[in-house]
Amino acid sequence: MGKSLYRKRKAPLSGNTRSGRRRSKRTGLFAFMFLSIVLLTLSRINHDVVEEFRGGIAKLATPAFEVISKPILQLRRGLRNGRTLLTNVNELDRLKLENQKLQQWKWRAKQLEIRLNSYAKIIQAVERPPLGFVTGRVVSEGRGPFIRSVLLNAGRNDGVRNGYPVVSAEGLVGRVVNSGLTASHVLLLTDLNSRIPVEIGSNRTRAILRGDNGPAPRLTYISKGAKIIDGEDVFTSGQGGLLPRGLRIGKVNIGHKFYRVALFSDPGRLEYLSVLFFNTPGIDIADPTGASSRPRRLEQPVASGRKTPNPADSLTHAKRSSHTSSPASTGVR
């Protein structure tokens, strides 16, 4: 095992041939290293060629990843279910009690919804059109020193555009940054480049949620004199017009140095995600080429075989525009 054969292989070669080969090898290596640095620079200035290249490769790789990731996801789900069974047997009584309480809340929420709609009619509030969505499966995870993203098997053919918000059943996960024809890259909230305008708690304190590649993003640019309490809800503020207002994100976690947010959705365990078709002038600026594309299929899950997340579950402070229980008719004010 420990004996090297490198010298043995080189032995029959003459000195000139060996040094010539070594020189050409070294030249090739440095040429490619130089090319890498050039590409890094192009990538930094966000050159179009880089984005097109990335989209093309993602399109080619997605079908393969879809096939390979299926058994992995099933295994993960099985392990999770097994762990839940082992640890949560004693939780059953508590959950039953909680369910009873939630049923009461559900009834109360319905009553409030009816009252809200009647008030909306009285003041003749303008109704927003319902928010469409498409659900896809995570086929690949992108991780590196500065990247937290996932590849979703839904793309422009499904109506996805750059800048659209992406939610799981638990809450906001991130937004689309690069949409190909059949796949899209989703930048997660934990990514270093992620900046989301948010509101905190019932006081609606405004701040910016900034990812730092850690599991809990930081709250920055908090309004002066704002009082933030540990455990308060954090949701999107809708400022800037790129995201709808009221998407659930997480809870405030006051740390040593910073205010952080414990996310409702675990970035390491994402399976099915919904892309919300939130069309605003801001989206047209973020993705001018997507304005003309028409979604081939709307409000249909790309993946099947499992209950897909209902985007309506992610909306906490948002209001519904109608009474229908269909998720497709969910509107945001």
Partner: peptide
Amino acid sequence: LADVLSSGPIGYWPLFYL
């Protein structure tokens, strides 16, 4: 390929591997 799949800056992983 690693750069494209991870959606990171193009040229980073080639530099690391090289």
